[in-house]
Amino acid sequence: MSMRTPLKTIRHLGSAKDGTSHFWQQRLTAVANVPLVIGFVILVIMLSGATHAEFVAAAGSPLGAIFLIAAVLSVTWHMRLGMQVVIEDYIHSEGMKIVLVLGNTFFTAAIALVSVFSILKLSFGG
């Protein structure tokens, strides 16, 4: 006799309650990261010794800003998912795990917020 409920089978969510969505989002952002990171490296090469005015002109231009925001969002989402797996792998105490997973979200959110705000200010605020 199976102890499994039909609901479990229908939902396909498994013990982590979100099925394969973590794995899938890690891959999705990884795929997006490839062109975004290549473009980012090129942008950094172009801006490595730039003056403030040159930097604002490039990073604050519509194309530059949209590209940078896309890169920041994809990378921060990807790195949050990635770090969560690392934490879950090595931290076995339940309390510490929760604290670190929370801290992970706060850190990545802070990086995303500071970066996106700064880019928008370069674009709109001069």
Partner: peptide, 10 residues
């Protein structure tokens, strides 16, 4: 570092 760079520019 990236966030810091962008923040500095802003």
């Amino acid at each position: 570092l990236l966030a810091w760079w962008l923040f500095a520019a802003a």
